[in-house]
Amino acid sequence: MAGPVISARELSLVFQTSDQPVQALARVNLEVGEGDFVSFIGPSGCGKTTLLRVIADLEQATSGTITVNGMTPQEARLKRAYGYVFQAPALFPWRTVERNVGLPLEVMGLDDAAARVARNIELVNLKGFEQKFPWQLSGGMQQRVSIARALAFDPRLLLMDEPFGALDEIVRDKLNQQLLDLWRRTGKTIVFVTHSIPEAVFLSSKIVVMSPRPGRIIDVITTNFPVDRTLDIRETPEFLAVAHRVREGLKAGHSYED
């Protein structure tokens, strides 16, 4: 597809709360290209999740423009342009793994459901767990089910909101590696929200550093790590240099102050 997958121009969002309006996003400009892996990183309240939700049409911007695949976010949502992975797995406890992954296919009335479900369960390495219910799986496995579910209808764009935030670091490392492999194999565009600097640097082709009050973008860093990188690159000087720049950006945005 020609043109950027996501393009935001002077995007602002103000939440009206009971005591005072909160500027969640202030004049955000952003382009995400086909096949990019873009991370939004920043402290709580920097608007990273809000920006992702605006892209997904779960929130509406108050000013500025944004397009997803050249359409408004609402049109893109109605055309089922993206898969969304939430902070928690949000699986339906009364459905087996297989039927959870098949949920979007049922809703959308897509055919070939059984084959799609099997393919995506295999993609997240959960073959053999098709008939299990969510409570029988570990937290990491549940989140992998939710990734398979987001991929089930084969969207070109994957939006992920701190998907590994609730997991321990060992599991998180493993899933980061698996997610990177998945990105390399499928060539999907991924927008990924995180508050972990190593996670953002390791996964991304483009890191968007954000800062709170008001939520804004303060730095965009393009990385050039090899696509078949492994977790070992986190010890290299290049990796540390990028991580340092992210940290400096967060510092400049007063993210470490109260």
Partner: peptide, 18 residues
């Protein structure tokens, strides 16, 4: 149902009866 589960159905553009 949690907000997340409802949001999920919204991302699928699910109808109210779904």
């Amino acid at each position: 149902p949690e907000t997340m589960q409802l949001d999920l159905m919204r991302t699928y553009n699910a109808s109210r009866s779904q």
